[in-house]
Simulated assay, not measured.
Amino acid sequence: MTTSQLLFTVLVAAVGLERLAEMVVSKRHAAWAFARGGVESGRGHFPVMVLLHTALLVGAVVEVVVADRPFVPGLGWPMLVLVLLAQGLRWWCISTLGQQWNTRVIVVPGASLVAAGPYRLMRHPNYVAVVVEGLALPLVHTAWVTAAAFTVLNLLLLSVRIRVEEQALGLRAGAA
């Protein structure tokens, strides 16, 4: 394993640790939501989402090592910046939603729809972070097959996820 591959593996492991931190926060928020009568929707797609996000991390490292993908500074550094910006956006979403944020779709009856932070600018900023990260993280070290596969599969998954989420929140397409 080259030095750049090792450093890339460390980066991907750090993103994996961040995901574990999200799961801890999510579990705590789910308990809070369920204690207040929260109703979960879309349980069927959640395991697929976990599998896909895990495959992104594993696939990126495997592709870089097995296919001996090079680190191309003109691509890698801008993609690293995008990965870091995506993380910042993700945690801005989490902090803005507070206890209402979750990796699952759990709606607490009577809770108001959050329209602050990044949600005042767009409807699904966390999914923007996911899309950017899913494309950019593998491309830090030119793992283009992983980037392309994740992006296509993630867009299919998000088409289901966003529909479930908006239905659970009582939103209609085109509503603010």
Score class of each variant (00 low, 15 high):
Glu63Asp: 11
Ala136Ile: 00
Gly42Met: 09
Phe150Gln: 10
Trp144Gly: 01
Ser112Cys: 13
Val164Pro: 00
Glu18Pro: 00
Val105Tyr: 00
Trp144Met: 13
Ala148Leu: 14
Ala143Asp: 07
Trp32Gln: 06
Gln5Met: 09
Glu166Arg: 05
Pro125Trp: 06
Gly37Ala: 11
Tyr119Met: 14
Val50Arg: 06
Ala136Trp: 01
Ser26Ala: 15
Val10Met: 12
Asn154His: 13
Val65Glu: 01
Val131Ala: 14
Ala176Thr: 08
Ala33Tyr: 07
Trp92Glu: 03
Ala129Gln: 09
Gln5Val: 03
Leu137Phe: 01
Arg163Asp: 15
Glu40Asp: 03
Gly59Phe: 01
Val15Arg: 13
Arg28Phe: 09
Thr54Val: 09
Gln167Arg: 00
Ala168Thr: 02
Val164Tyr: 04
Leu52Tyr: 00
Arg104Ser: 02
Ala33Met: 09
Gly170Cys: 06
Thr142Lys: 09
Tyr119Gln: 13
Leu57Asn: 06
Gln87Gly: 03
Leu57Arg: 06
Ala129Asp: 12
Ile106Pro: 04
Arg163Val: 08
Gly59Ile: 02
Phe150Thr: 11
Gly88Met: 07
Leu97Gly: 04
Leu158Ile: 01
Val145Gln: 08
Phe8His: 04
Leu97Asn: 08
Leu56His: 06
Leu157Trp: 06
Pro73Val: 05
Ala116His: 14
Val164Phe: 09
Pro70Lys: 12
Phe46Thr: 05
Val81Lys: 12
Val145Glu: 09
Thr142Leu: 13
His29Cys: 05
Pro78Leu: 03
Ala143Pro: 12
Val128Tyr: 08
Trp91Phe: 15
Leu85His: 07
Gly110Glu: 11
Val64Trp: 04
Thr151Asn: 10
Ser95Met: 14
Thr3Leu: 06
Ala176Arg: 15
Val58Met: 06
Val58His: 08
Leu156Asp: 05
Arg123His: 06
Val58Tyr: 14
Val12Tyr: 04
Gln100Leu: 08
Val145Phe: 11
Leu153Ile: 07
Val24Pro: 01
Ala136Ser: 12
Val114Ile: 14
Val83Trp: 01
Arg90His: 07
Val132Met: 13
Asn154Ser: 15
Trp77Ser: 11
Trp91Ala: 01
Gly98Glu: 03
Pro138Gln: 14
Pro78Ala: 07
Phe34Ile: 00
Cys93Met: 04
Leu7Asp: 04
Ala35Glu: 11
Thr151Tyr: 02
Gln100Ile: 07
Ser112Gln: 15
Ala86Met: 03
Val140Glu: 01
Leu57Glu: 02
Ala173Gly: 13
Phe46Pro: 05
Ala31Ile: 08
Pro73Gln: 14
Glu63Ser: 02
Glu133Arg: 00
Gly134His: 11
Gln167Leu: 07
Leu139Glu: 03
Asn102Ser: 15
Val25Lys: 03
Val50Ile: 06
Val131Thr: 13
Ala30Arg: 03
Gly38Trp: 08
Ala115Gly: 05
Val72Asn: 03
Arg36Gln: 13
His29Val: 00
Arg172Trp: 03
Phe71Glu: 10
Val164Met: 10
Leu137Ile: 10
Arg69Phe: 10
Thr2Asp: 13
Ala143Met: 12
Val132Asp: 05
His45Asp: 02
Gly170Ile: 03
Ala14Leu: 15
Ser4Arg: 06
Val58Asp: 08
Val152Leu: 15
Leu169Gly: 09
Trp32Thr: 00
Ala175Ser: 11
Ser112Asn: 14
Met23Asn: 11
Gly117Val: 14
Leu82Ser: 01
Arg163Lys: 15
Leu137Ala: 11
